[in-house]
């Protein structure tokens, strides 16, 4: 059997597709609709205390990392379909920006 490293790329892609489908809409409803309407408030101290919980940290990390990876992998293939090629440039932009987002979220969660 031919071995391939592709599952390393698409397993988090598939997991990210599922996780983002299940949770991103309700998160946007909170931050993009309920918050601007004033139906919900996110005061600094209260949110810091909430994010201090390790379970909340793991959830945030999982949602952000998997969603970012999902987007990077899918945009890479979409870029190919859009005639932008699938070379190192497209890969660097897609996976590079996902790694940047995951890195930033990880540092922030470790500091919180």
């Amino acid at each position: 059997m031919v071995r391939s490293n592709k599952p390393i790329l698409w397993l988090p892609f598939a997991a990210g597709g599922l996780v983002s489908a299940l949770i991103i809409p309700v998160l946007i409803a909170i931050t993009g609709v309920l918050l601007p309407l004033g139906l919900i408030h996110l005061p600094y101290a209260k949110l810091v205390a909430t994010v201090h919980n390790p379970i909340v940290k793991v959830v945030f990390f999982g949602v952000i990392a998997l969603s970012a990876w999902h987007a990077a992998h899918r945009m890479r293939t979409a870029a190919h379909d859009l005639g932008l090629g699938g070379g190192i440039f497209v890969k660097t932009i897609c996976y590079g920006s996902a790694i940047l987002v995951i890195f930033a979220a990880t540092i922030a969660l470790l500091l919180l």
């Binding site: 998160l27 946007i28 949602v63 952000i64 987002v101 922030a108 919180l112």
Partner: peptide, 18 residues
Amino acid sequence: SLFIGLYSALLALGLVQL
């Protein structure tokens, strides 16, 4: 997926600012 990625970046930015 572009918008999923952009929103996850917004969430990450929120954590950084927090």
